[in-house]
Computed example of a mutant assay.
Amino acid sequence: MNVGEFRAAVRAWLDENDLAPAPDHSFEAQVAQLSRVRRALYDAGWMRYGWPAEVGGLGGPAVLRAVLGEEVANRDLAEPGIYSMIEVLAPTMISYAVPELAAQMVPLLLSGREQWCQGFSEPGSGSDLASLSTRAVPRGDDWVINGQKVWTSLAQYASRCVLLTRTAPGHGGITAFFVDMDTPGITVRPLRTMHGVDEFAEVYFDDVVVPGDRMLGRPGDGWQVAMDLLPHERSTCFWHRITYLFTRLDRILAEADLGTADDDELGAAYLALHTARCRSRSTQQRLADGAALGPETSIDKVLLATSEQQLFDTARDLLPGTLELTDSEWRPEFLYSRAATIYGGTAEIQRNIIARRLLRLGAE
């Protein structure tokens, strides 16, 4: 099935099957809706396209997954940030878990039967991932983990965690594990953000015992796990997010008084989003062609973050009072957009990467 046929078939199926979310906008309802959407798409086969047969997939190019996520985002069926986590976690399992474990676990994620989380960031070790300190120590065939993670999305709903730990000094001393979240010694404390959502959590590991066969790759492969994860985060995930942001631009056009609107501001918001989408499409194509993605994806991150903030600045300006005086969806979305230049690597770090690794500035 080519991309055009796949898109047409997915659209026809979605037209016939009502997956619209309930009016409840709580985060708990969003997570439940995510499971519902994944389960329905998996049972109908759509969620299995683009994934290898070894993990329950139906094969085909990975771009089919991008198309499916685009259609989900266009219809507002699931919150795009948590929907797209599958594009980070499932490829990691396929690449680094032992085949038997990947075959057992990945279908649970694809089908919505489970949610997983990603334990990377720590207090004082966010964008500087190499400085993480959560430690794993061998004990017989097992490993004992102690430490703390923070900004862990969906941790309070997750059954499993892809976890980075330190097993030796330096980049080569980071090791990844696939941890069951009901293991004794794990404590999850949700964090309430300024936009009123408990999406993130602190996670504490106190003498948590993890079997050796739950290691992803070999000891010291954790840094490479993180680097291999970025191409998926900054290709398909970004594509989904940009699609969603275009639906918000459409809402601005529908709700604003266009007779008094600033055409320059609207045009600038559209141009910023269009530029991010063009860049994202190029990245998607390079990944589909088998190219190794590297520091150039920092450009994608900067373009997406700045365009998202510009879009919601435009909403604030063209829908006067809506953010400040009402409880509409615009307020939490505007507040969430303030973090776009922080999460997933701060804008400052991304610009440093662009300057040093792409433009070769400051080498002297």
Rank of each mutant, 00 (worst) to 15 (best):
E5M: 06
E5Y: 03
A9E: 12
R11G: 05
R11M: 04
W13D: 01
D15L: 04
E16K: 13
A20S: 15
A22C: 06
F27K: 02
V31C: 00
R36I: 05
R39Q: 14
A40R: 12
R48F: 12
W51L: 13
P52Y: 13
V55W: 09
V55S: 06
L58Q: 12
G59V: 09
G60A: 04
A62G: 13
V63C: 04
A66I: 07
E70C: 05
V72G: 02
R75A: 06
Y83F: 15
S84A: 15
M85A: 10
A90G: 10
T92K: 05
S95V: 10
Y96I: 07
A97Q: 11
V98T: 11
V98R: 15
V98N: 13
V98P: 03
L101G: 01
L101K: 14
M105C: 13
P107E: 04
S111A: 13
R113G: 12
F120E: 09
E122C: 12
G124H: 11
G126Y: 14
S127Y: 14
D128H: 13
L129Q: 12
A130Y: 14
S131P: 05
S133R: 14
A136T: 04
V137G: 02
R139L: 10
G140C: 10
V144W: 01
V150R: 07
S153G: 03
L154S: 03
A158P: 09
S159F: 09
L164D: 01
R166T: 07
A168W: 09
G170W: 08
G173Y: 11
I174V: 14
T175Q: 03
F177K: 02
P184N: 01
G185T: 01
G185C: 01
T187V: 05
R189I: 10
M194Q: 05
M194V: 09
E199D: 00
E199V: 13
F200E: 03
Y204R: 04
F205D: 00
D207M: 02
D207G: 04
P211V: 10
G212N: 07
L216D: 06
R218M: 13
G220L: 11
D221T: 08
D221I: 07
W223K: 03
V225E: 02
V225L: 14
D228N: 14
P231I: 01
S235F: 01
C237M: 13
H240Y: 06
Y244S: 07
T247S: 07
L249M: 15
D250H: 12
I252R: 00
A254H: 08
A261H: 06
D264L: 07
L273V: 11
L273D: 06
H274V: 10
T275E: 10
C278G: 15
C278T: 15
C278W: 02
C278M: 14
R279K: 12
R281Y: 06
A288N: 06
G290A: 12
G290R: 07
G290Y: 08
G290K: 02
A291I: 01
A291C: 12
G294I: 02
K301M: 07
A305G: 13
T306P: 00
S307E: 02
E308T: 11
E308G: 02
Q309S: 06
Q310H: 09
P320N: 07
T322C: 00
E324M: 05
D327Q: 10
D327C: 06
F334Q: 00
S337C: 02
R338N: 01
R338E: 01
A339E: 06
A340M: 11
A340D: 00
Y343T: 11
G345N: 08
A347Y: 02
I349K: 11
Q350V: 05
I353E: 09
L359H: 10
G362P: 04
G362R: 03
G362S: 03
